[in-house]
Design a protein around this nucleic acid. Structure first.
Lengths: 188, 188
DNA sequence: TAAAGCATGTAAGAGGTTACATGATTGG
DNA sequence: CCAATCATGTAACCTCTTACATGCTTTA
């Protein structure tokens, strides 16, 4: 999905693609060549990308890839997928980076699913905070609870601004906004 | 390492181990049986763990594992390892959870390496914030910068309390404390 | 001209996931 | 007694990483 998304914006060859992926995924990532080239080969075999005219170099010329119509379809599919694998952080971040390609409702759905996931995570983190008395593990669970709270409020801000952007014509139409309620703990 | 660390505290069989691992690693984890049992078999083959007397069940009795002397050694090695793979979040969290088994200086070293890693991450995040103008990607990099700041200050608090605990006898011995300086940005 | 970086690719090996297979035990 | 849960394992498959192989291009 990352490859297709990047190629969608601009034709690129593998080496350049690797650099873009590294800065896009930021820390904790960057694919290796042994992962990237086979992936490109698979995508080409599947007809999702094609190599444009190779530069006028001798020997192993660099292959500039471009997304095909089939590739666009595949990208939409991957981006819109509501499967369970979209639950992990890495996948969500990647999806959000390409969220502009999603229709507004699908985008909102993605954010809400993420929010639900984070609420669960927060609940879990809180129960672990109660369970672990002290030591490094305690510090760890407290920090992960704070991180979860932080993530959650971030997502809620995103959702709010998304809704605001989705329904700008009228300033007094309650229904579309009334569905969303920020997470509030019941027992404090 | 996680398996050895848990078994070090208490003899357990695979199924129970899986549950403990799931709650220990919290969200974003929990090993599958297809991963756990082969891992246990590898550890047993390596002489790091051994099966205690199996419960009095017929058929496939459950195997209660216990750490051997060799296993203790292996655990120490894995825990103390200063290799590059200790840079990722998952590994660090796992290590911190078992940090009580490390000698104070190694523990401090681990925290400092983590801090250095987070400082780098923060610098990277800040440069990306400058690079990305707007859209979802912008929101993403801003959030990851905030997360990095949060993580960093958490680690610095941990380091501070570690140092405070390491040198309690004298209240005025500068040297051991003077080495550490919280991260402050130079250009704001 | 030698080193560093650009550029593409393959091979071996490790480890993980899902799905399958098997059987015991407990609770409604 | 039937379903769920406990409990252990195997097999097929997939993808990643590391290390290797190859050769061009730029720069000190």
């Amino acid at each position: 999905m990352a490859i297709l998304g990047l190629l969608k914006e601009q034709e690129l060859h593998g080496y350049e693609l690797k650099k873009r992926l590294a800065e896009m995924l930021g820390f904790a990532s960057g694919v290796s060549f042994g992962s990237l080239y086979p992936a490109l080969a698979r995508l080409e075999a599947a007809g999702a990308v094609e190599a444009a005219a190779s530069g006028a170099r001798k020997g192993r010329a660099r292959k500039v890839y471009r997304v095909t119509a089939r590739g666009e379809e595949l990208f939409e599919e991957l981006l819109a997928a509501e499967n369970a694998s979209s639950d992990d952080d890495r996948t969500f971040n990647l999806r959000l980076a390409f969220a502009r390609y999603l229709p507004p409702d699908a985008r909102l759905g993605m954010l809400e699913r993420r929010r639900a996931h984070l609420v669960e995570r927060l609940i879990q983190a809180r129960s672990r905070v109660k369970a672990v008395r002290d030591g490094y593990a305690r510090s760890l669970v407290e920090h992960s609870r704070e991180a979860a709270e932080h993530d959650l409020s971030w997502i809620e801000r995103l959702i709010a601004s998304e809704r605001a952007a989705a329904a700008p014509p009228s300033l007094t139409d309650g229904p579309s906004l009334s569905t969303f309620r920020p997470y509030q703990e019941e027992n404090t």
